[in-house]
Design a protein around this nucleic acid. Sequence first.
RNA 1: GGUCCUGUGGCCGAGUGGCUAGGCAGAGCUCUGCAAAAGCUUCUACAGCGGUUCGAAUCCGCUCGGGACCUCCA
Length: 503
Amino acid sequence: MSSLQFYNSLTRQKEVFSSLIPGRVGMYVCGPTVSGESHLGHARPFITFDIVYRYLRHLGYQVRYVRNITDAGHFEEEGRESEDKISKKAILEKMEPMELVQKYTNLFHWAMREFNNVEPSIEPTATGHIVEQIVMIQRIIADGYAYEANGSVYFDVEKYHRDFSAKGMQYGILSGRVLDDQLETTRELESQEEKRNKADFALWKHAAPEHIMRWQSPWGEGFPGWHIECSAMSNKYLGAEFDIHGGGMDLQFPHHECEIAQSAVCNHKIPAKFWLHNNMITINGRKMGKSYNNVIKLSELFSGTHEILTQGYSPMTVRFFILQTHYRSTLDFSNEALQAAEKGLRRIWEAFTQLNKLVISENNISAGDPDLEQKCFEVLNALDDDMNDDLNTAKVLAGLFELVPVINSIKDGLIKANALTTATMQMMKEKFNTFLVDIFGLRDEKKHDDQKLGAVLQLIAEIRKDARTKKDYATSDKIRNQLLEAGIQLKDEKDGGLSWELV
RNA sequence: GGUCCUGUGGCCGAGUGGCUAGGCAGAGCUCUGCAAAAGCUUCUACAGCGGUUCGAAUCCGCUCGGGACCUCCA
């Protein structure tokens, strides 16, 4: 079997993954800013890295997965308004800042549960780590790579670049940006005069009097810059050097680039070995974001209450939709695509359910259909390789879909039960379970397990069967049609049995 | 303007120098009292133009189109 490879943004190539400490993995993923409700675009990294987390654990690693909550807020428009995003909205809504933060944190957690994302090992908050951030800033100042100006502290990018290029940690190492170009093209912003250089970024910002969220620091009352929180928290919980740092591609620059610079000064190392970035979700070809005014919040997505939605899409449909594309490709949203995902998910899940119900004959050593046996065996074996190839979930799903007709045919008796060997049948069950449930985190959203409903339907099935035997189709059709209206679809099986599905 | 990514059939999307990806939709057939589901078969492809090659959707160049980042951003 192949070994796991990730595309590393830092080296711009696929690399075989190996952890710094055998058997253990440290992973940091940039979490949400809880100044508003999460939207569809936010779902992608958290689902993507949930898959990474699940897969690494599946491979036997003990993983510490750290995903922060940004609750201190960074600047909406750095310099110009110099205002804390979170406290700004809190004033509008007349809420305590922490009340607002709590509200959106709760909503975020709700969405994560809906998506069936495994909880991270540690979910640190920026406000809970002000001290660590201040200490880190002091260290950077002491080493001469940051300076104070009017109660704010800025990172000296040019000096850092000059000194650290020789150590192979030039500014731009991750994003491929050339600092000289930066210096020319960075926009003019009002409080730029505090900075020695346009490319410098804030480590600490002086708080204007109207600021609600503020903390004491050696430089007066203020609040931390955006980039420092991730550096401080990843360093605290994962150490100076850890295995994986993840986030959206839009964070590659400047956020992750700045993280590297900060950590490099403090620890003389690039903090993470592997940098993984998921691509964006677009809507009509445009990135989903506030500035484009095309945001679909997750609650709207699930309920269908947004003007561009023709219906609601369940969390598992969205999850499946995301999995059908490679994480480094852009994914374009459309009602058509989501509806296709919904149907595709239902199809594969139905086959999976049937597969688990199949009774596998024991000790069938010779396949009744050697060609089919061979084909299934190859498809099943390719699954791990595809997953190892930089998490090609799309290809894994395509492989599973190839087996769907086989499963359905066995169930319907179109393929003989002894066509496949016992070993292959068991492998099929195992792989479907492993990938769909354990690694992809899909789950049944319908309530099949309602025992009372099951009992009632059992009775109705018998009544309907009697009617059909007597060729009283008026009665049997009435039962079926009325139940369909009630959201229960009856299906007559080939063997005379009856199955139902909540629709 | 700078840096980078991308252009696959009606839609969404994998992909590799030579082998049908897959899903959804469409068409036909089978099964069925009729449905539904399912099975089988099937129609639409690799933006354009050159080049490298025995052979390219896959490599190179150019043209055209789309996007991301350079500012908060998942």
